[in-house]
Amino acid sequence: MSDRNDVAVIGAGIVGLATADALLERGAAVTVYERGVPGNGQSGGESRIFRHAHDDPRMVEMARRSRAIWREWEQRFGVELVSDDGVVALGPPVDERLPILDAAGGIAARRIEADAIDGWLPVMSSVDASAMVDADGGAIRTTAAIRALVERVGDGLVADEVLTVRPTSRGTVEVRAGGVTAQHDHVVVCAGPGTSALARQVGLHPPVDLQAHVRSTFAVRGDPPPRLACLQDSSGAFGETGVYAAPTPGNRSYAVGLSETVEVGEGGTVVDPASLAALDERARAYVRRALPGLDPDPVDVRHCWVTALPWSDDGVAAWQGSGVTVVAGHNLFKQAPALGRALAAAAFGEGLGELDPASRLGAAD
C-alpha cells in the first residue's frame, strides 16, 4: 500500500466529495477545500440524470459500476439517491446506443413503442420517434447526495479558496488557501472551472473548453404523477434535437435544459450575455410544445459552467504530475462514485487506467 496517507481534494462538488469518500475508505486523512457552498457549482440543482446509455462502451461499464455504488451509498446513508422512475430516450441515438447496452448485458434497457411513452412520461405530448427506456436509470437526488457526503467528510471540509498548489523539495505538495498553508502527500484537483489554472501551476495543461449553460425548472400541473421518468430527446419532433430533463424529488417539478451551451472567452467571460437568456427562452418554448403537463413559467432557473473535453460531451480524463492528480470532464454527476474510486486509486500511486487522456474515455468508436 502506498504511504500517501494525507490527501487533499480541491473542490467539494460531487466528484470531489466522491473522491474524498473513496480516500477515507482507504484509510487516508482527507482535507477537502471548497471556496463556496459544497455542491453549489457545477453540481448545483435539485436533480441530475442517471443513465447507462453512452456512445463509448467503457462509459457504459463505468455507469454500471457507479450505479452499484449509488446503491451502496443508499444503504450506508439510509436515503434514496437515485429514483426508480427510469430514463426515456427519443430519437436516432436510440438505434445507436441500444445495441451497446444490449452487448453490455444486465442493463434493463429496452425499446418501447410510442404509445407506451405516456406510462413513463405522463407530462409529455404524443410523439412518433424511436424510443427506449432505461429502467435502472432515474433522477439523482443531488441535494441528498451532497449532504450525505459532506457529513462523511466532517471536519475535513475547509471553507477556503485555494490560490496555489506547489510541489516541495520534501516530496510533499503545498496548498495555500486564503487562511491556510498546509502540506499534503498528494492533491486531487476537482475544481470545475478553476481546475485549469491550478493544473498549470504544476505543469499540467488539460484541454478544457469552458462553456456556460442554463437549466430551468417547471412545476407539474395538478397532482404529481407516481412515475416521472427522466428524458433525453434527440428526436427533433418538437423543434429541438438536444433536450434533457429530470424530475425533482416528489415529482412536483421537472428540470429541463438544452444540451447546447454558450461560448465563454478569456477570463471566464460569457462572450454574448444575451445567449444564456436565449437558451432559457428556447427551453420554455420547448416545454410549451412538448411538455403540456408542465406550467411553462419556470419556478427556478439555474446557470452553471460546463468543462468539456474535445473528444466528447461525455469525455472525462485525469492528468498527473508532481504529486497532483487533475480531473476534468462533463456530465460527470452520474459517474461520480466510480470516478471517485478511480481517482483515489490514482492518488495512491496505482495509475490512471482508463482515465489516462490517451484513452479518450467517452469518445465513440
Rank of each mutant, 00 (worst) to 15 (best):
residue 256 V to N: 05
residue 297 D to M: 13
residue 275 S to K: 15
residue 15 V to L: 14
residue 298 P to A: 13
residue 92 P to E: 12
residue 188 V to A: 04
residue 191 A to T: 09
residue 293 G to N: 01
residue 184 H to D: 12
residue 72 E to K: 03
residue 20 A to E: 08
residue 130 S to Y: 07
residue 22 A to P: 07
residue 134 D to S: 15
residue 63 A to I: 08
residue 99 P to Q: 11
residue 297 D to K: 14
residue 338 A to Q: 02
residue 84 D to E: 10
residue 187 V to P: 05
residue 187 V to N: 00
residue 119 G to K: 11
residue 120 W to V: 03
residue 338 A to T: 02
residue 9 V to W: 02
residue 300 D to M: 09
residue 275 S to R: 12
residue 93 P to Y: 00
residue 185 D to G: 13
residue 319 W to I: 07
residue 248 T to L: 02
residue 308 A to F: 04
residue 136 D to G: 01
residue 201 Q to R: 13
residue 312 S to Y: 03
residue 5 N to P: 00
residue 301 V to G: 04
residue 165 V to A: 06
residue 354 E to C: 11
residue 275 S to P: 06
residue 83 S to E: 04
residue 281 E to C: 04
residue 120 W to R: 05
residue 155 D to I: 10
residue 306 V to I: 12
residue 220 V to C: 15
residue 321 G to N: 15
residue 31 T to W: 05
residue 36 G to H: 07
residue 79 V to D: 08
residue 76 R to W: 00
residue 255 A to V: 09
residue 305 W to A: 15
residue 139 A to N: 09
residue 46 E to H: 09
residue 115 D to E: 15
residue 43 S to F: 08
residue 319 W to K: 09
residue 289 R to F: 04
residue 31 T to S: 09
residue 30 V to D: 00
residue 333 F to D: 01
residue 360 R to A: 10
residue 320 Q to G: 12
residue 43 S to V: 08
residue 223 D to S: 01
residue 323 G to L: 10
residue 255 A to M: 11
residue 233 D to Q: 10
residue 82 V to N: 07
residue 294 L to Q: 07
residue 81 L to K: 02
residue 187 V to R: 03
residue 2 S to P: 01
residue 189 V to L: 03
residue 236 G to E: 08
residue 335 Q to P: 05
residue 274 A to N: 00
residue 201 Q to W: 07
residue 328 A to W: 07
residue 123 V to D: 14
residue 316 V to E: 02
residue 170 R to S: 14
residue 138 G to M: 05
residue 161 E to W: 11
residue 325 T to K: 03
residue 196 S to Q: 13
residue 105 G to H: 13
residue 197 A to S: 10
residue 305 W to R: 09
residue 351 G to D: 11
residue 51 R to F: 10
residue 235 S to A: 14
residue 243 V to P: 11
residue 363 A to E: 15
residue 256 V to M: 07
residue 308 A to W: 06
residue 68 A to P: 08
residue 279 L to F: 09
residue 252 R to E: 12
residue 152 R to K: 14
residue 277 A to D: 13
residue 346 A to W: 10
residue 49 I to M: 08
residue 176 R to I: 15
residue 69 I to E: 00
residue 250 G to K: 08
residue 261 T to H: 02
residue 50 F to Y: 14
residue 32 V to C: 10
residue 60 V to N: 00
residue 345 A to E: 06
residue 248 T to I: 05
residue 292 P to N: 10
residue 161 E to M: 15
residue 240 E to T: 06
residue 26 R to T: 05
residue 252 R to A: 15
residue 117 I to F: 09
residue 291 L to G: 09
residue 107 I to K: 00
residue 236 G to D: 08
residue 337 P to A: 12
residue 344 A to N: 03
residue 339 L to T: 03
residue 80 E to K: 08
residue 282 R to E: 08
residue 13 G to E: 02
residue 186 H to S: 12
residue 287 V to K: 01
residue 225 P to N: 10
residue 246 A to G: 11
residue 39 G to N: 01
residue 188 V to Q: 03
